[in-house]
Design a protein around this nucleic acid. Sequence first.
DNA 1: TTTCTAACA
DNA 2: TGTTAGCA
Length: 161
Amino acid sequence: MDYDFKNWLKDRAPKGRLDQLAPVIGISAAAKLTKLSDSALRKYEATGLIIYHRTAGGSRMLCIEDLERIRIIQHLIKKKGLNLEGILRLWALLPCWEFRKCDEQTLESCPAAKDSDRPCWVVLREAKGCEGVDCRTCEVYRFGAYCTEDLKSLVHGLQGR
DNA sequence: TTTCTAACA
DNA sequence: TGTTAGCA
């Protein structure tokens, strides 16, 4: 298998002049923008669905893609009947080693690759880390949010069907 | 203004 | 699931 996840992601992720991953607003402003409470947004983070930026002082900061991620979570809850735990488990099934092209040895010893309950970014944060990669910029974390609608079509398309 | 917890709809 | 209140 040799899927071009980076290009796929480039086509789906929100575009714009601004860096989509740069922290731009605090949680209070984000709450107003999304019409949710700041507690609800913190709950998403506590569950493991989103990794917010933190300021030096420890306050959460959100980027454009975080807002898009919140929109997707809302869609999955309201339209698809999932709950927060369900979304987490769905994302836990992403084959992260395919995205990261881990070698056999790395894959064998990786706790995230064996865990079907929690996404790799949750597992590896409480464990060691993924070769020092920032999960926020990782394709697994980012792709996960966008794949839920058409992961199958991606796979079919890449197999030339 | 932010953090977190807990009660409650 | 999400809001609100109370607190530091």
